[in-house]
Simulated scan of single mutants.
Amino acid sequence: MEVVSAILYQLTKNLQEDESSDLFARLDFCVPEFEFPAYNTKENVLMFLHEDMVAEQKAQCLYETILSNVHDTEVSDPIRFLRAREIVHYQRLGEAIQIVQGKIEKE
């Protein structure tokens, strides 16, 4: 996240207020509020996996928004790498959910 913060800072430091507010309004779209019930949080592995998947989706959305607004390869290449990593993480979390659900069903 530090890399993304540094990139966003560099991209927005010389923007006018209306330009930066437009960009941040589009970025806010990437951070919807997902809330899970607070009960049984310590034992609910599936809930934590789903929360992690949501975090991966938020990051992927953020990277896609940045890519749609930036055409500098020094920025877009690292962001593409980070986006690809989030996609893989999302897929692995989905696989972990299937494994955990299988084990729960066997109990």
Results as ranks from 00 to 15, higher is better:
Asn14Gln: 13
Ile79His: 11
Val45Tyr: 00
Ile79Ser: 03
Glu33Tyr: 09
Gly102Ser: 13
Gln10Tyr: 05
His89Gly: 10
Pro32Tyr: 01
Gln98Ser: 10
Pro78Arg: 07
Leu49Gly: 00
Ser21Ala: 09
Tyr9Cys: 12
Asn14Phe: 06
Val54Met: 13
Glu43Leu: 11
Glu107Tyr: 05
Cys30Glu: 07
Ile104His: 03
Asp52Phe: 08
Asn44Gln: 09
Lys103Gln: 09
Pro37Cys: 08
Arg26Asn: 12
Leu11Phe: 00
Val70Cys: 15
Ser5Tyr: 00
Lys13Phe: 07
Ser68Ala: 14
Leu27Glu: 04
Ile104Trp: 08
Thr73Cys: 05
Val70His: 02
Val70Gln: 12
Pro37Gln: 11
Asp28Gln: 13
Phe36Ser: 15
Glu43Lys: 14
Leu46Arg: 02
Leu8Glu: 02
Gln57Cys: 11
Ile7Thr: 04
Thr73Tyr: 06
Ile66Trp: 04
Glu35Asn: 11
Ile99Val: 14
Ala96Ile: 00
Lys42Pro: 00
Leu23Ala: 05
Arg83Phe: 02
Asp72Met: 08
Tyr90Asn: 11
Gly94Met: 09
Glu56Tyr: 01
Lys106Glu: 07
Thr65Phe: 03
Asp18Tyr: 08
Tyr90Met: 11
Ile66Tyr: 06
Ser5Phe: 00
Asp77Arg: 15
Gly102Tyr: 05
Gln10His: 09
Phe34Met: 15
Ala55His: 08
Gln57Phe: 08
Ser76Glu: 05
Glu17Ile: 14
Ile104Val: 15
Leu82Gly: 03
Leu67Asp: 03
Met53Phe: 13
Asn40Phe: 01
Thr41Asp: 14
Asn44Thr: 01
Lys106Gly: 02
Met47Tyr: 01
Leu11Ser: 04
Val88Pro: 01
Phe81Met: 12
Glu105Ile: 10
His71Thr: 10
Phe29Arg: 15
Val45His: 00
Phe24Thr: 04
Ile66Thr: 06
Asn44His: 02
Leu11Ile: 15
Pro78Thr: 02
Ser21Leu: 09
Met53Arg: 13
Gln60Gly: 09
Ala96Trp: 00
Pro32Ala: 04
Glu35Gln: 08
Gln98Trp: 02
His89Arg: 13
Arg26Val: 03
Ser21Ile: 09
Asn40Arg: 14
Glu86His: 04
Leu15Ser: 06
Leu11Arg: 12
Glu74Arg: 15
Lys103Trp: 09
Ala38Tyr: 11
Val3Ala: 10
Phe81Tyr: 13
Pro32Met: 06
Asn40Val: 05
Tyr63Ile: 10
Gln98Ile: 08
Asp18Glu: 11
Lys13Pro: 02
Val100Thr: 06
Leu23Thr: 05
Ala96Phe: 00
Thr41Lys: 14
Val88Ile: 10
Ala84Phe: 00
Glu95Val: 10
Val4Gln: 05
Pro32Trp: 04
Glu74Pro: 01
Asp22Thr: 14
Ala55Thr: 12
Leu46Pro: 01
Asp72Gly: 05
Lys103His: 08
Glu56Trp: 02
Gln91Tyr: 01
Asp77Glu: 12
Glu19Thr: 07
Val45Pro: 00
Leu23Ile: 15
Val3Thr: 09
Lys103Val: 04
Gln60Arg: 15
Val4Asn: 07
Leu67Ser: 09
Glu74Asp: 08
Thr41Asn: 14
Ser20Gln: 13
Ile99Met: 07
Cys30Met: 09
Ala84Ile: 00
Leu62Lys: 12
Val4Ile: 15
Ala38Arg: 14
Ala84Thr: 01
His71Gln: 12
Phe48Arg: 08
Leu11Asn: 06
Glu64Trp: 06
Glu95Asn: 11
Gln98Asn: 06
